[in-house]
Simulated scan of single mutants.
Amino acid sequence: MPHTSSAKKSLRQDAKRKERNRAVKKVLKTTLKKFATVLPTGTPEQKQAEYNASAKQLDKAAAKGVIHKNAAARKKSQLAKKLAIKK
């Protein structure tokens, strides 16, 4: 347990950040799974809509610092490649 007041505050801040990051990651994973389920069976419009939603969530997560911007770019590229193959 922390002893100094600054260490106690840091612990509180870390807990808040952890919760926010987990929430963002949860939404991101849900969106990516939804894209993966629509990919084999959905219409082209559905696929494009899910890709756009996934890309948006990846960009938001990168902007908030939850994931690295290069990781977001790499994942968007992978999704776009899968989308192009299915078209």
Rank of each mutant, 00 (worst) to 15 (best):
T4D: 05
T4L: 07
T4K: 14
S5H: 15
S6Q: 09
K9D: 08
L11I: 13
Q13F: 09
K16F: 07
K16C: 06
K18W: 01
K18V: 01
K18T: 04
K18C: 02
E19I: 06
R20G: 04
N21F: 03
R22K: 14
R22E: 00
A23Q: 03
V24I: 14
K26F: 02
V27F: 03
L28Y: 05
K29D: 03
K29S: 04
K29L: 07
T30L: 05
T30Q: 10
T31L: 10
T31Y: 09
K34P: 10
A36V: 09
T37V: 07
V38G: 01
V38N: 00
V38M: 07
L39T: 12
L39Y: 05
P40R: 04
T41M: 13
T43S: 13
E45K: 08
E45G: 04
Q48Y: 04
Q48C: 05
A49I: 00
A49K: 00
E50K: 10
E50H: 11
Y51P: 06
N52M: 15
N52R: 00
N52E: 15
A53N: 15
A53Y: 05
S54F: 01
S54R: 02
A55H: 10
A55E: 13
K56F: 08
D59Q: 10
K60W: 06
K60H: 04
A61P: 01
A62W: 13
A62D: 07
A63R: 09
K64P: 03
G65H: 01
G65R: 02
I67V: 06
A71H: 00
A72T: 08
A72E: 06
A73G: 06
A73P: 01
R74A: 10
K75D: 04
K76L: 12
S77M: 11
S77Q: 10
S77K: 08
A80D: 13
A80M: 15
L83D: 03
A84V: 13
K86M: 14
K87L: 14
K87N: 13
K87Y: 11
